[in-house]
Structures are given as structure tokens and as C-alpha cells.
Amino acid sequence: MAQPAGERLLKLSRSVKRAMSWQTINRNLPVMDPKAPPVLTEAVREKIRGFFPRYETKRAVLLPALHIVQDALGHISWKAMAEIAALLEIQPSDVIDTISFYTHFWTHSKGKKVIVACRSVSCEVMGGVAVLEELKKRLGIDEHETTADGAYSLVTEECLAGCDHAPCVIINEKLHKRVRAEDVVKLLADHANARLEIPRSDLFDAPAKTAADPASQNSQAEDLVGTTSDVREMRES
């Protein structure tokens, strides 16, 4: 452990890059620096603790906690997972177990705004594919990627239950209805495209208060070490 954490991570990431089919993911080494300051602020912790009385077990607070952390940090890093686990008195493996099951949680840093395009049957019938293609073209990114400036991330979801307004797209919290391919430019240019028009409840925060900052989160290294396959990155195969 004489090596500084940064060096180790770099070495680790290099080894992952080099690896091919028989690449071995090493789980013996921590991917986060144990000495780094905690990523969860006291306010976030307090908010999570506020959910404790609602459930009989602390583990049940995991989903709300993950929502809160993701809203605060933009994504859930390995370090955040370990801290949530300590807070809820469970094992970190339980946290990654749960996170990886749900498509809504990200272990990688993402953009300020996350565009969720629906690809359910109604949206596909009404031309959702064209909208998705247009989004990809205009943003210059593929699914599950983030633009270089960290403004947008693009994901797809199976059904957003907005089928009567198909095709639909959610940007952060706002559902955009009957989006046509030609509307995409206007939609992306609109600064208020992620703002909810109704009064909010203050139980959860608005998402992505912080911008994705790859340098501060060691996210590059974390992305590389991430889980080997990812339902969220399931493309046409």
C-alpha cells in the first residue's frame, strides 16, 4: 500500500485496458482511495436518516438513499456505495447488488441533464426511433454516453407510461410529449427543458444539482473497473 492511490488506480485502469478475453477483473484491490474525504455530506446523510422511521429495517431505506445520493452527486460512485452501506449497516456488496438491478441508478458520472428516450412499442409505432436517432445525431453521442461538455447523457428506457403522448422523452424530471424528430433541436436548445412546471414536494431533491466532474470523482478509473456487463448498456444484441 506504499503506492499512492492515484498511481494504483492508473495502473489498474491500464491493466484493464490491455486485457482481452481472459482479462481478469481484480476485486482484491479497492477502487477508491480509503483516505479520501467522504463524498456524502452531512446534509445528505441527515436526509437519508430521515427515512429510517418509515421502514422496519435500515436496508429498506436503500432505495430512497440511493435516490438522494444520486440526486446530490449525479451518480453513485464506489465510494458513495461504501458510505451508504456503512450508514445503513449493510455490506457494500448488497448495495452494488441492488444498484445494478435497477436501470435508474448510475455508477458512472453522467451529464447535467439525462435524456431518457422511450423505446416501448407505442413509441416505436409512433416514430420513437427517428427521435432517438435525431437525439443521437444532435448530441453526437450514442446511447448510454455523455456529451463531452457534460451537458447531456442519453439513455433509453423500456416504457415511460406516456404512451398516449407517444413518442415521449424525459429530460431529468420533465416528460416531453409527442416529440417529433424535427422538434429535437428546439427541445435541446430550451434551457427550461428539464424544469418541472408543477409545485414540487421537498421529499427528494431535483436531480443533478452538481455537474458531472470526471476529475473530482475519479470517475475515469471507476468506469473502467465497473461491472463487466451492464443491462443499461445492452444494445442491439
Partner: peptide, 22 residues
Amino acid sequence: FELGIVNRGSRCEIDAFPGKPL
């Protein structure tokens, strides 16, 4: 509790949290 299952569907895998090996 070192091991857990990650991902879902056909992409399910067994995994350990990095730094918390078996």
C-alpha cells in the same frame, strides 16, 4: 456477505465489491 449478484436478466453475474474480496 462478500458476494452478491449484479445486473439483471441474462447479464446477471456474481461479483464482490472491489476491495472487499472473498
